[in-house]
């Protein structure tokens, strides 16, 4: 049946996409969650699940809501999933100084640990803005659209977060990056 074949083709396409993009999504989630490997995996799986459900939209014409850039779309889904998760749990959870257990096999580099440690001390929304701006290389406007905020608010969050990161990381960052 033609639809079955088409569905199989879509699924194959999706799996290839998921395999290619999950690394980048996972790393974004890792930064967003301040180094929580388990939560990162959950968020990425949730994101990929949503992408799977939306996958047929890649093949629509552009004015019918086509997803033009599935990689970028997935990043937006991930950031929003993270923010939703934060909102739901914010009453029951307090930010923690201690890094959660790392589920990855490879040991993290000193640079990654330092960075994640500093990120984990930012409020969730500020952290999301920093990750989008400096890890995803998004513009202020793109970031604002992704976190559903105004450009001005994103700028404010960004400069506040940068000031705090600068205090936390200071010269250490320059030294680690240079290595």
């Amino acid at each position: 049946m033609a639809t079955a074949r088409r569905r199989a083709a879509l699924e194959e396409e999706f799996v290839a996409f998921a395999a290619a993009r999950s690394g980048q999504l996972y790393r974004s989630a890792y930064f967003l969650t301040g180094g929580d490997a388990h939560l990162s995996e959950d968020l990425v799986q949730e994101t990929l699940g949503q992408m799977y459900a939306q996958w047929h939209r890649l093949h629509r014409p552009s004015w019918a809501g086509r997803i033009d850039n599935p990689a970028g779309y997935a990043q937006t889904v991930l950031v929003r999933a993270y923010l939703t998760h934060q909102r739901r749990r914010s009453s029951s959870e307090r930010p923690s100084r201690a890094l959660p257990e790392v589920a990855e096999q490879a040991p993290d580099s000193a640079l990654r640990l330092t960075l994640v440690d500093a990120l984990s001390q930012l409020p969730p929304r500020d952290r999301a803005v920093v990750v989008l701006r400096y890890w995803e290389d998004r513009s202020v406007e793109e970031t604002a659209a992704m976190v559903k905020d105004s450009s001005a608010a994103v700028r404010t969050r960004c400069s506040r977060a940068l000031a705090k990161l600068r205090v936390l990381l200071g010269a250490e960052l320059a030294e680690l990056v240079a290595r």
């Binding site: 998921a18 395999a19 996972y26 799986q45 949730e46 990929l48 459900a53």
Partner: peptide, 12 residues
């Protein structure tokens, strides 16, 4: 990566 893809597929 394999876990992420499989999990995503199952949820989807």
């Amino acid at each position: 990566t394999a876990r992420l893809v499989d999990g995503g597929l199952a949820i989807g």
